[in-house]
Design a protein around this nucleic acid. Sequence first.
DNA 1: GTCTATACTTCGATAGAC
DNA 2: GTCTATCGAAGTATAGAC
Lengths: 220, 220
Amino acid sequence: MKNNIKNSSKSGNEPKKNTKQKIFDVSVDLFAEKGFDAVSVREIGREVGIRESSIYNHYQNKEAILDAIIDYFKDELTQSGPPEEETESLIDQGPEVFFEVGARMYIERINTPKMEKIWRLVSIETYHNEKIREFFKKTLLEEPIDGWENIFTIMIKKGLIKPFNPRTLAYEYFSFAIFLFFEYFVLKYDEDFDSFMDLALKKMNDHAEFLLKAIKVEEV
Amino acid sequence: MKNNIKNSSKSGNEPKKNTKQKIFDVSVDLFAEKGFDAVSVREIGREVGIRESSIYNHYQNKEAILDAIIDYFKDELTQSGPPEEETESLIDQGPEVFFEVGARMYIERINTPKMEKIWRLVSIETYHNEKIREFFKKTLLEEPIDGWENIFTIMIKKGLIKPFNPRTLAYEYFSFAIFLFFEYFVLKYDEDFDSFMDLALKKMNDHAEFLLKAIKVEEV
DNA sequence: GTCTATACTTCGATAGAC
DNA sequence: GTCTATCGAAGTATAGAC
């Protein structure tokens, strides 16, 4: 069944990769490297191995390719989202555990080379494209902030941390993640990184540890 | 003497604004609003009130206008830099005072509408232009981080704060400023802000207060 | 589904008259 | 220093043959 997705021809020849998929993948590469405006449809076609006019048999126009990429990005993020119901029980295991697991879950949203490139694309086109900007504001900033505010509220209720303003805590914690994204995807993308994810995870955990030391209720 | 800069004609007619200056100002407006690539030389000429070909009598090409803007930005930042020598004595007045004054000095680098627009321009073109990106990394990230590391080192030596890793503290403090810039200039620039500077100053001071509470040595 | 050919637009930049 | 006129390059997109 699954193979039918890749090749719908009856004779089942060698599994030639879907051209539409090729266009998608090539566009991710090029957009992430050069930015949307700096990539021409001709260039995409050249990399795929077809004429630019053939692109339009698969996507209505250049913008539609970008839209498809953003849709893919949204889907991947949604799927890798937090289980919701497990939040409470996870908190009960102590704030340290929660931050550790939370950061790992978040960073795992960049768990493939393709997703890492789309993160880059989103980061550098956030201003130039209003759809991306609104998506960034809502899904990558406001929703996480609300989520963390909620988590800190629970922690305070449970007496795990001192009663700071939970919204303040949410910003204190999460703004550091935004900074890490900006530092890596915008400022340092072309530099040598053995593994951004490992490094970011470590930095985020150090940050959480520092924050916790400041707000944790001492055990008696 | 100073007037000669504006109008070098002998007869001293009505003080007509320098065309080169007009091009500069119009370009700042347009680049900050739409981004460098999205603004054409024709559009700049139209706003200035001359043909696009006349632009080239004042600047060698479009890129040269951007370079001039960035140079202006650098000069303004350098001039408003910290006095260096007063750092130590300022620290002696207590960490609270230092953070307050430091944040104010920093935010005052966006003290004119023109500088605010160029901040925006820098923020949105940081990726697309390598000169801007290198400048951002060096002058707006690494140098301030080094500076704050130095300041925290002094504070620790003086016994004002607990002996955390000063570089960690520098990132804990300053990453929040980068986040504020990103949030404002990229994500929320088009929204209603009565005064970004007042709001950012307050947020930065709240952040400093929170940080201080965590690291300050209690007075005995 | 891919190709050739081409329409149409916009861009940065230059030449030369005034 | 500004204008008109124009060039060449590059871009998106479409029409129609195969």
